[in-house]
């Protein structure tokens, strides 16, 4: 099955991105596909290479980058939500790209399931 994932909350403050990551990793392990993850609202804050959590904590952004590289996941950050929050191309972590909301709608149209993580 193909899963699209929508993340609506930023890292650390909220568990949404962690839960989405665990969901995506597990779905892939079980043989499903996660072609794209879309970051919206404060979820766009998951995408920057500026985040430096303490060493004994998980690095939310880096593990998305790693999962994306290993499994060819398209990490898409909403342009309007990103600009509002000061996120631009030059501070994106590896694997992330900025694009429009059409990329979210496409997931709904093309994939078997669209799963939202947020409040």
């Amino acid at each position: 099955m193909q899963f699209g994932i929508l993340i609506n909350e930023g890292p650390y403050n909220h568990q949404a991105s962690d839960s989405a990551y665990l969901f995506a990793r597990t779905a892939i392990e079980k043989g499903h596909k996660v072609p794209r993850v879309f970051f919206y609202h404060d979820g766009v804050n998951n995408s920057t290479n500026k985040s430096e959590p303490p060493q004994d904590d998980r690095n939310v952004t880096q593990r998305w980058s790693k999962l994306a590289e290993e499994h060819g996941i398209d990490l898409v950050v909403c342009v309007a939500a990103a600009l509002r929050r000061g996120i631009k191309d030059d501070i994106l972590a590896p694997g992330f790209r900025i694009s429009g909301l059409g990329q979210l709608v496409e997931m709904g149209i093309q994939y078997d399931r669209l799963v939202t993580f947020g409040d």
Binding site: H41, A81, G100, V105
Partner: peptide, 19 residues
């Protein structure tokens, strides 16, 4: 919170995709 405002944007784009 910003959910309602940003949510409306998705609604409009989805309609533009003739869904």
């Amino acid at each position: 919170t910003v959910y309602a405002l940003e949510g409306l944007e998705v609604v409009l784009i989805t309609a533009a995709f003739d869904q």
